[in-house]
Structure formats: structure tokens, C-alpha cells
């Protein structure tokens, strides 16, 4: 199964995705984050929230594009979701494949470990302590994951736990399944 996933992803990446210059992409994201920091006067908690909101708005659109490109059906388990997010989602949009690891015992939590992060190339956080403690530079990814998964009826809690920019040994995003949303019949319909 995992082999076919990889093959599909490679195929889509090669043939169906429009690519842009990575420096243009990195610098564009960088200036967005830097501008947010200026706008919120270095209130990094606010900046994180704002990035997540932006990501959420991207995610709820991106999932449609993702499903259209891949033609994938519904995942059977959260484990499969994890594989698809990492091996196809990240692959076709960012051309990186984060490692799926640190599963919790109940199979409802896992981590995505990014070996390289295209968003954060060249970046050095501001030299004040506040930034390296509070700012999650790539927090837009959190929003994207939340938004995209919510559109396929998965309510998840997503958060960065580590970032190499802060001096950690890896960049790690933690995902936690809260519940599978059911299609609810609007009140008064039945």
C-alpha cells in the first residue's frame, strides 16, 4: 500500500503540479511573517494565531484541490490519514515527506517530523529571547492541516512542538484527533 501511495504522489508531483521558484516562495512567506510581526508589534502569540487563521483559510480550499488532483477516497483509519497527509499532501504541495512518528497508544495522536522545511530556509529568528520562545515561524502549516482535515470531517488539534529555528533538534508538528465529525441533519429536517 505504502509503495503505491509513494508512486501516486511522485506521479502527481511530476505531472500535475505547477512549480514555482522556491526562493520566491520562501521569501514571500518570510515577508508575510515579518510584516505580521511588525503589525502586531512583536506580539508573537498574536502572530501565531494570525498565521494559523491564514493557514486555515488556505486549508479549507486546498483540500478540494488535493482531492481533485489525487482522486483519493475516504481514509479508513487515522493511521491512513497520517500516511496520506505526509506522503501525498506534503509531497505534492511542498515536495517534502515528513516522517510520521511518535504514535500514542490509542492511535489518536502522532507527530510529523520535517527534516527540511521549505518555509524556513534562510530564516533566522530575531535575536530577542521572546521570539525564540513564543514565535512558531511556520505556524501557517498548523492552520492548513486543521482546515483541510476539518473539511473531511476530522476535527484535529494541531500544534508545533519543536522547531529547528528555535534551536531544537528537529521540526515537529503534533496532531491529535479529537473526533470524527458526523454529517449532521439540520434541526427540523427529519
Amino acid at each position: 500500500m505504502s509503495k503505491t501511495i509513494k508512486a501516486t504522489a511522485d506521479d502527481i508531483w511530476k505531472n500535475k503540479v505547477e512549480k514555482i521558484n522556491s526562493e520566491l516562495f520562501t521569501l514571500t512567506y518570510g515577508s508575510v511573517v515579518a510584516q505580521l510581526c511588525r503589525d502586531f508589534h512583536n506580539d508573537y502569540v498574536q502572530v501565531n494565531a494570525q498565521l494559523e487563521r491564514m493557514g486555515f483559510n488556505i486549508g479549507i480550499r486546498l483540500i478540494e484541490d488535493f482531492l481533485a488532483r489525487t482522486g483519493l477516497g475516504r481514509c479508513q483509519s487515522f493511521k491512513e490519514t497520517a500516511e496520506v497527509v505526509s506522503k501525498i499532501g506534503f509531497k505534492i504541495f511542498l515536495n517534502v515527506v515528513p516522517l510520521v512518528t511518535n504514535w500514542s497508544g490509542d492511535g489518536k495522536q502522532f507527530s510529523l517530523v520535517l527534516e527540511e522545511n521549505p518555509l524556513a530556509e534562510f530564516v533566522e529568528l530575531p535575536q530577542d529571547d521572546k521570539a525564540s520562545r513564543a514565535l512558531w515561524y511556520s505556524n501557517v502549516l498548523v492552520g492548513v492541516l486543521k482546515g483541510a482535515l476539518q473539511m473531511v470531517q476530522l476535527e484535529v488539534d494541531v500544534a508545533f512542538v519543536k522547531d529547528v529555528l528555535r534551536g531544537d533538534d528537529a521540526t515537529e508538528i503534533r496532531l491529535k484527533l479529537i473526533k470524527v465529525l458526523r454529517d449532521e441533519v439540520p434541526a427540523g429536517e427529519d
Partner: peptide, 19 residues
């Protein structure tokens, strides 16, 4: 050039990055 590409560095600022 790498320093300059960092979004938090402005041209003509002192370079204080330890790396």
C-alpha cells in the same frame, strides 16, 4: 547574501546573528 535573505534582517542593520 544568506543573512540578507532572512526576513527578519533589514538592509544596513548591524549583523548580530551568532551563526
Amino acid at each position: 547574501v544568506k543573512v540578507l535573505l532572512s526576513p527578519f534582517y533589514n538592509a544596513n542593520d548591524p549583523i548580530i546573528s551568532p551563526s
